[in-house]
Computed example of a mutant assay.
Amino acid sequence: MADIQRAMQDLLERKVEEGNERGLQLAVYYQGELIVDAYAGIADQASGRAVDGSTLFPVFSTTKGVVATVIHLLAERGRLQYDTKIADIWPEFGVNGKSDATIGHALYHTTGIPHMPTGIGIADVGDWDKMCEEIARLTPQWPPGERMEYHAITYGWILGEVARRVDGRPFSQILKEDISVPLGITDMYVGLPEGMEHRVAVLEEPGYVQPTEEADSLQAIPAWICPLHAWMNTPAARRACVPASNGIMSARAAARHYAALLPGGIDGVQLLPDSRMKVATAPLRLKDNVPLPRGMGYGLGKEGDIMGDRLVIFGHGGYGGSIAFADPELGLAVGFTKNLYSPNDAGSSIMEELRRRVAGL
């Protein structure tokens, strides 16, 4: 196992030296053992702060997989069902054509409301109650369940408010008490606590071009929250609870979360039974009954995907190149975090080399 650790460490350092990456982490569990815990580069160019294993990275939509796990934990405890109508839990949600939208629709990105509310601004994103009120009033673009369109940001408030209403605790507290504490994770947050700013990597995106959508058009990611990397470099964005897109974590934490979803779990902790994960990772089927590479809150492997080309693989990636996933057939769980967003992203080549090395174990 020392060989794979050394090889992946050397590869990360080389990608930084070549200028393809600034700072990055890679953590890999294989059949219950942490076989790679590698990191390289700079977390903050201004100060010269180096990346270490406990550096925290904003991971954007990689957070969505953790949200899914929270919902599946509540389902396993009998607090909700996937076919429960959201309006049965959250009555205000059932207006303007959404009365039949279910929790399953939200997990599969088929509620019909991928778009953010209009008439709000960046200061509102940190106001949980206001955002939930605005989301509840949205009108779907299609009948819930009819088609899938990625709910880039609305996903988090829909499912986060469902979790809060059935459980009673705020989403960030559920995450801490039901995932982080049982797994001994101390570096996974949706809503950064005070005193942690010094550990967060600064994001960079050279050559970013501002989108030009009309202000009154329906936008899943509104222009006013862009550039996303600049937004996530602000204390306000880091402290907010936006479960679809503002998780801050280390690669170790991301990988450990997925290791705990594999058969047998990790260090005696399996968050969800195999039977629940079979349901949670069932591919979406719409009217044509063709299986799509989308599970209930997790993306699934497909041809050309960075996670791998098999539907059994599940996880989620995020804007800029972070990703975390599990491969049940191999007993593999991976977390990958980074802070330089560019067309020369090295993530794919790093995952290719990782797969090659794992195949030789």
Rank of each mutant, 00 (worst) to 15 (best):
R6T: 06
L11A: 09
E21A: 06
A38Q: 12
S47C: 10
G48K: 11
S54D: 11
T55C: 10
P58H: 13
V59P: 07
S61V: 13
V67S: 06
I71W: 09
Y82I: 07
K85A: 14
I89H: 07
G97A: 01
K98R: 10
K98G: 09
D100I: 02
T102F: 09
T102A: 11
I103H: 05
I103Q: 06
H105P: 01
L107Q: 03
G112Y: 00
G112V: 00
G112T: 00
G112N: 00
P114S: 02
T118E: 01
A123S: 04
M131Q: 03
E134M: 03
R137N: 11
T139L: 02
P143L: 02
W157N: 08
G160P: 06
G160N: 06
R165V: 07
R169M: 07
Q173N: 02
L175C: 12
E177N: 10
I179K: 10
I185S: 04
I185V: 10
T186Y: 13
Y189K: 01
V200H: 05
E205R: 10
V209N: 14
V209Y: 12
Q210G: 12
T212C: 05
E214S: 14
Q219K: 14
A220N: 09
A223L: 04
A223C: 09
A223S: 13
W224Y: 15
H229V: 08
A236R: 15
R239W: 08
A240M: 09
R252T: 15
A254F: 11
A260D: 13
P263S: 06
G264N: 01
D267L: 05
V269Q: 12
S275V: 14
A280L: 02
T281H: 06
D288K: 12
P291Q: 05
L292A: 14
M296E: 02
M296T: 01
G297F: 12
I306Q: 05
R310S: 11
G318H: 10
I323S: 14
F325W: 12
G331K: 15
Y341G: 01
S342D: 13
G347I: 05
R355H: 15
A359W: 14
G360P: 01
